[in-house]
């Protein structure tokens, strides 16, 4: 009988860039089962999923619109994770930014867009930072596990939003639980006419580039990566571990806050309860799929944007529930994580 054994051995280097690709293929094979259960043809479904959104101008641009908040939350999670700070709170920090955007958007009527928009962005960034500072300080000062605190604070801020929308900020015009519409000068201008693609997309691309620059080209970034990969060694080499982690956590929160601004000021123009269908969590998927390389994370965010858009097309064309998109995203994360782990092993014949 032929016997096999599993041993620890690093994968050859050429396989690393292929991991996301293989993960995508495996994910589609696995999720095909669900498509079949929904009485649709998997090949047809994946045509609508991946190719049809790119086949016409409107839905191609819509993919970029969907990708905008994901680029930001992806960048946010990347800088935190690269520094060994497990920020699961991009979702909540996004809402903090959205609250700031809605609030500022109500009072900036007298400012021209050239002033109002930077104020919106800075305000959203600051709000995200502020919200992120609670778990970050708890982590750095008292060693409270950030995974727990960042995650729990996500629900806390949802209640704050609910309070605002059902109380002081309830829209007097419609009476719906949404904040009053933000003033025109605070709205992000469209980049391309007859589409929803707005300035936020550009902001998102710039943030991806900034995160890339920080991590690879600055001394702060080197310290962050040192802390992320080896806290003890980093401390030995004189890196102030707490300060570095705090900086990463605050920048991460700020960038996630920007995602709240782009959604309020670029898409909805109101603060609503459901401003994010889980962009913060999808950002974790993008960051993982991109292996914490900011440029890879950018591509991954675009890809998830494509899945989100595609899920709607599949649902319209084939009657498969739109939640298939979420299942695909989640499966993709699990498969990718599994592959990152399994690449360290090989199976050998005895």
């Amino acid at each position: 009988m032929v016997k096999f054994r599993i041993e620890k051995a690093p994968a050859p280097l050429w396989i690393k860039p292929l991991i996301p690709l293989i993960a995508i293929i495996v994910t589609f094979l696995v999720t095909s089962i669900l498509v079949v259960m929904a009485n649709a043809n998997p090949l047809e479904a994946y045509y609508y999923f991946l190719l049809s959104p790119l086949s016409n101008r409107v839905s191609a641009l819509e993919t970029l619109v969907k990708a905008t908040p994901l680029l930001l939350t992806g960048a946010s999670v990347t800088i935190a994770f690269a520094s060994g700070y497990w920020n699961i709170g991009a979702e909540g920090q996004l809402y903090a930014g959205a609250i700031a955007a809605a609030g500022l958007g109500m009072v900036l009527g007298n400012f021209p867009p050239i002033l109002a928009i930077p104020i919106m962005l800075i305000g959203g960034f600051a709000a995200g930072m502020l919200w992120a500072s609670i778990p970050a300080l708890l982590k750095v000062k008292l060693a409270v596990d950030e995974v727990v605190t960042t995650l729990l604070l996500n629900s806390v801020i949802l209640f704050i939003v609910s309070f605002l929308l059902n109380g002081p900020w309830r829209d007097p015009v419609s009476g719906w639980p949404q904040s009053p519409q933000i003033v025109d000068s605070a709205q992000l201008p469209r980049l391309i006419s007859r589409s929803r693609l707005h300035l936020g997309f550009l902001v998102a691309i710039i943030m991806i580039l900034i995160v890339w620059f920080i991590l690879t080209r600055t001394s702060l970034g080197l310290k962050m990566r040192a802390v992320g990969h080896g806290q003890e060694a980093a401390r030995f080499m004189g890196v102030n571990v707490g300060q570095t982690m705090l900086t990463a956590a605050l920048i991460s929160g700020g960038i996630a806050g920007l995602a709240g601004v782009t959604e309020v000021a670029g898409i909805h123009f109101h603060l609503i309860d459901a401003i994010s269908p889980g962009f913060g969590y999808s950002g974790i998927i993008a960051a993982t799929l991109g292996a914490l390389n900011p440029l890879g994370v950018g591509l991954a965010a675009m890809f998830i944007g494509l899945i989100d858009t595609g899920a709607q097309t599949v649902s319209r064309s084939l009657g498969v529930p739109v939640y298939l998109g979420n299942v695909v995203q989640a499966t993709l994360l699990l498969v990718t994580l599994g592959m990152f782990l399994l690449q360290n092993y090989r199976i050998r014949r005895d």
């Binding site: 310290k223 990566r225 040192a226 080896g230 980093a234």
Partner: peptide, 14 residues
Amino acid sequence: GVVGELTVAENLAL
């Protein structure tokens, strides 16, 4: 004393 994932040059500089 060194961060394994960083390069030789980075470890010498940090």
